[in-house]
Simulated scan of single mutants.
Amino acid sequence: MLNPIPFYRTLRETDPVHWAPEVHGWFLTRHDDVMNSFRDARFSANRVSLMEQQLQGLDPSLLEHFTGNIKLQMMMYDGRDHIRMRRQANPSFTPQALDSWLPAIRRTMHMLLDRVQKDGQMDFVPSVSYELPPRVIGELFGMPQEEHELLLQWAAPIAEFGGLTVGMDVVTMAKKADTAMKEFAAHMTALAEKRRHEPGQDLLSQMMHGHDPRMGPGMTMEELVANAILMLNAGHMTTTDQLSNLIHDLLTHPEQLRLLQQDPKLLSAAVEESLRYRPAVPFHYRIVGEEMQLRGKTLRKGDVVFMGIAAANRDPAVFSEPDRFDITRDHLHQKHLTFSFGPHHCLGAGLARRELEIALEVLLQRMPELRLDPERPPRHKCSSLIFRGFDSMHVRW
């Protein structure tokens, strides 16, 4: 669906807890329901059993490394195990820690623009938004530049398999995702072993050596590797799509772009408004842990619930004129849910915000005449519930 916003509005107004037999799951579309479901322990993040059900019929050996890794990632845990893993990663994502990486983000963005500046045109998606996030993560892990290409090669098939849609060759994509996960895990294991004996200031070293044993057991080596991979994959496609969405939002709202160019202090506000207006991940999903009632509907144990972030972000009960893109909006009092909410609030939200702000700042400084290419219209990526962005977006300057 190219523009699902009217459909979200209809559900929000007429059936905010909607059963969709096509996907055998519930859809929540009101801001308070989505926010409350994120912090309600009865909605479980442990989706391993669902993932295994979805892969029934495939030879388990096809996804041995993929599923084995996913099962160890903190996003699949609730309660104590989730807290245990997240606590060990938290120090690497404090504002102070993230600010130390600002020069690396800026340097990477300039490098990407150096490649295309003289051309006067580019496809923004492959040239910038697809390249920036994994290269920044590579910097955070202390990986040399020549290894950043490997990150791109591994991240793509893993992300594509995670966003499977009807009509795709599941077996072929499963093989590619499993091979990528196997190679990625082997590389990160070797890097972790090196950091064990030769720690540095990188994110992996901080995770390995910053754990306080007084807080309980830390992550195993396998869990460290799995969650390092999670950090790349979670930060790759989401920030890639959000950066493309941000640039498209501004270029299609020229009066807002002029406001930003006249007042650069609106930079962070522009990022927040794009996060609200066009989130890269329109839905998160959870599993009902025990039978419950919600707005007169019975949600049974094991049911899948899709929390409609994109719908909640346009709820008029929270946002005035929600369908208007407005970078002067009061985001302190009108909270979007793009980075989730509660215990599973996105660990990398601070990093994503810094990447988006610096990318936008550098782009507008170097290409103040940036505009969409009228001869080659953008091609939306809208074939999955999980990711929403652009497959292609040609620009000129």
Rank of each mutant, 00 (worst) to 15 (best):
T239K: 13
F93T: 08
L132F: 05
L152Y: 09
M307P: 04
L347M: 07
H248A: 09
G138E: 07
L351N: 00
L224Y: 06
P157V: 00
L191T: 11
L267H: 02
A45W: 03
T189M: 11
V136P: 01
L191G: 00
D119I: 06
I247S: 04
E255Q: 15
R276N: 00
R106P: 00
L299K: 01
R329W: 10
P133L: 04
T165E: 13
H336R: 04
D263A: 14
V171W: 02
L351G: 05
P316V: 00
D81C: 03
L58G: 08
D178Q: 03
G142E: 04
T239E: 03
L363G: 13
F93P: 01
E361M: 14
Q54E: 14
H345K: 09
A310F: 05
R106K: 14
R196F: 05
R366I: 09
L337I: 00
R115K: 15
W397A: 01
P126E: 02
S392F: 05
W397T: 06
G235K: 06
I327W: 11
A352Y: 05
L191S: 11
N3P: 11
D59V: 00
L112M: 09
D202W: 04
K118Y: 11
L55R: 15
L55I: 10
P254Q: 14
E198W: 01
L337A: 04
L332W: 08
Q53G: 06
R195H: 06
E146M: 03
L294E: 09
H18F: 13
D169A: 07
F124G: 08
V170I: 15
R371C: 11
M109P: 05
E139F: 07
N69I: 03
L332N: 13
M35Y: 13
P378S: 09
I5Y: 15
P217I: 02
D330V: 00
S320L: 07
Q201V: 12
A190N: 08
N69Q: 09
L243Q: 11
P4M: 09
G216H: 00
D40Q: 04
A41Y: 08
K297L: 11
A20N: 12
M35L: 13
L385C: 07
Q88G: 03
M221S: 07
M122Q: 00
R388M: 11
D32V: 14
H209M: 01
R300H: 15
A159Q: 02
S392R: 15
R379Y: 11
